[in-house]
Structure formats: structure tokens, C-alpha cells
């Protein structure tokens, strides 16, 4: 039972982590919360639905294609909704984000209707038994893909030139400009990567739960945002850790205490951690500069 729930928790945790990365990376660079990120995640999921069901594409083609398309949505959102008001008050950015969020939700409802769609991934579900443990191939796909993507991101951020530029930009925007980094390009790149990861997370939700709906961005987005805060917003490893912690805690809470309070466990742990460690698990203490 315990190990079984742990595996279930890791599965959803991996999904939360992939979405949380987008929140955290954008915050790390621009110090803004992209509240439209949940809806970008939803758009990615529906694009996947469109490619597989309406166009009949194979999954291994539809996955990268929808990820790329969602990356462009993210880059476009930043260009039209955030870039023009970059020097404005943070409140303006928040309002702009909510506007994008409402727009995307309604756009999806106009195109795909308000109902919940089955995802029909076409992947034959098979289960493996190890002792008392039951593992489905879908769980393995979810865990495998989320881990591979996170390792890939870790490699890009830490070992490539654009990754160094991302870290420099996130640390000090003006200093990054002054050594010749095209920070606008880095910001676009960051939105693109975050959105692509969110899209993959959405497709994983689709094949795992077999249900997608136009306001799914709200619940998943909020929980992933909690994961980003929990891990320490702005920190990439923090978003990963936060995602897994939220996934595992809510799964255990639902299994051992009450399934009705699933969401309460996720946000409960957030509140507790923030009381004792306001900067999050891996977040750095922020010193306000004068």
C-alpha cells in the first residue's frame, strides 16, 4: 500500500513539476508570476488532442509538434501581454496575465466546447505486478518522460551557453545586458521552454487520466504554482522538488485520510512550509537591495 501510493504520488508529482518549472523559470528571470501559464498548459493539451484525434497523428509525432506549437503560444503571450508593460507596475502585469488567462479559456471553449473530452491516447494499457505493487505502463511513461525532460532541462541550464545566459539574466538583468546578452531573446526562450514543458505535462495528464477540459488550467495551474512556491520560486531544482512533494503529499492524504480533502493537503503543506521557511524548500533568502 505505502509503496503503491508513493509511486502514484511520484506520477502526479512529475506532472506538477513539469508545469511548476514554467512558473519558476519565468519568475526567476522577470520576477513576475505568469498567471496565464495554467491556460497555456491547457492549450497545449488541447492541441495534442487536436493533432491526435482530429488529424489522426501518431503520438510520437503529436507530442513534439504540440510542444513546439505551445512554445510559440508562450512566446507570443510574452510578446503581446508582458513585454509592452515590462517597466510598468507589477499589478499591471497581473491584470494582463488574468486577461490572457480568460481569453485562452474562452478560446478553447469556443473551439472545443465546454465538455470534458476523453483523450483516447491509443496506448494499450497494460499493468505489471511486482509483489503487491501494481504499475501501469502509462505510469511508467509519465515518470520516465517527466524525469528525462527534467534532466534535459538541467543539462541545458547548466551546461550550455544559452543556459549560462539564462542564469546570468535571471541573476541580474542589467548586468546580463551589459555583457552583451540579448535578454529579450533569453526571455522568449524561457517562455518557450516553460510552455513546451507544460504542454507535455498536459499530454501526460491526458493519457494518465484520459480526461481533458477547458478549465483544467485552473486547478493544475494553481497546484503547480503552489509547487513552485513550495520549492522556492525562481529555483529550477526547487520546482522539481516542490512538484514531487505536492504530488506525494496529496496522494498520501487522499489514500490514508480522506480523498475529499485531496486539494486541502496540497495547499496545507504549502502553508506549513511557508510558515517555517518563507523562501521555500530550496529558495534563497531574498535580500532587498537598497
Amino acid at each position: 500500500m505505502f509503496t503503491q501510493q508513493l509511486i502514484n504520488g511520484i506520477t502526479v508529482g512529475g506532472i506538477y513539476a513539469l508545469i511548476a518549472l514554467g512558473y519558476s523559470m519565468v519568475y526567476g528571470i522577470l520576477r513576475i508570476v505568469n498567471f496565464a501559464h495554467g491556460d497555456i498548459f491547457m492549450m497545449g493539451t488541447f492541441l495534442g488532442l487536436f493533432f491526435t484525434q482530429s488529424l489522426g497523428m501518431q503520438f510520437y509525432i503529436a507530442f513534439p509538434l504540440s510542444a513546439a506549437a505551445t512554445a510559440f503560444i508562450g512566446i507570443f503571450v510574452e510578446k503581446i501581454a508582458y513585454r509592452p508593460i515590462r517597466i510598468a507596475d507589477k499589478l499591471a502585469v497581473l491584470i494582463s496575465a488574468l486577461g490572457v488567462s480568460i481569453f485562452l479559456q474562452n478560446l478553447a471553449q469556443i473551439i472545443w466546447g465546454t465538455e470534458t473530452h476523453a483523450f483516447k491516447s491509443g496506448i494499450e494499457v497494460s499493468t505489471f505486478k511486482f509483489g503487491g505493487l501494481i504499475l501501469s505502463n502509462i505510469q511508467l511513461i509519465v515518470i520516465f518522460l517527466s524525469c528525462v525532460l527534467m534532466m534535459g532541462l538541467y543539462f541545458v541550464v547548466n551546461k550550455t551557453k544559452i543556459g549560462v545566459a539564462m542564469r546570468a539574466t535571471s541573476h541580474n538583468l542589467n548586468s546580463a545586458k551589459l555583457i552583451g546578452i540579448n535578454t529579450d531573446r533569453i526571455i522568449s526562450f524561457t517562455f518557450g521552454i516553460g510552455s513546451a514543458l507544460a504542454c507535455i505535462a498536459g499530454l501526460l495528464v491526458g493519457i494518465y487520466y484520459d480526461a481533458v477540459f477547458p478549465i483544467m488550467g485552473y486547478s493544475y495551474g494553481l497546484k503547480a504554482f503552489a509547487a513552485a512556491i513550495l520549492g522556492g520560486i525562481g529555483s529550477i531544482p526547487g520546482a522539481m522538488v516542490g512538484g514531487f512533494v505536492i504530488g506525494i503529499v496529496e496522494t498520501f492524504g487522499a489514500a490514508y485520510i480522506s480523498a475529499g480533502y485531496r486539494d486541502a493537503f496540497a495547499f496545507g503543506i504549502l502553508i506549513i512550509v511557508l510558515i517555517f521557511r518563507p523562501s521555500g524548500i530550496l529558495g534563497k533568502k531574498l535580500v532587498e537591495k537598497v
Binding site: R167, A168, N174, S175, K177, L178, T183
Partner: peptide, 28 residues
């Protein structure tokens, strides 16, 4: 011109308050 192009033209600025990347090593 945007800042990064000005750097490529040959102007380099040492910012006020140093603006070093404190999370990276001296060499980096």
C-alpha cells in the same frame, strides 16, 4: 541600438554596485 548590440560595437560598462553574478564562480 539595444544594449547587447552596443556591447558588440565595443562599449563595456562596469555597473554601479558591481553587478557581478554572485551565484557563479569568479572564473565563470
Amino acid at each position: 541600438s539595444p544594449a547587447h548590440e552596443i556591447v558588440s560595437m565595443g562599449i563595456s560598462q562596469v555597473p554601479e554596485g558591481r553587478g557581478i553574478f554572485s551565484n557563479l564562480t569568479v572564473y565563470e
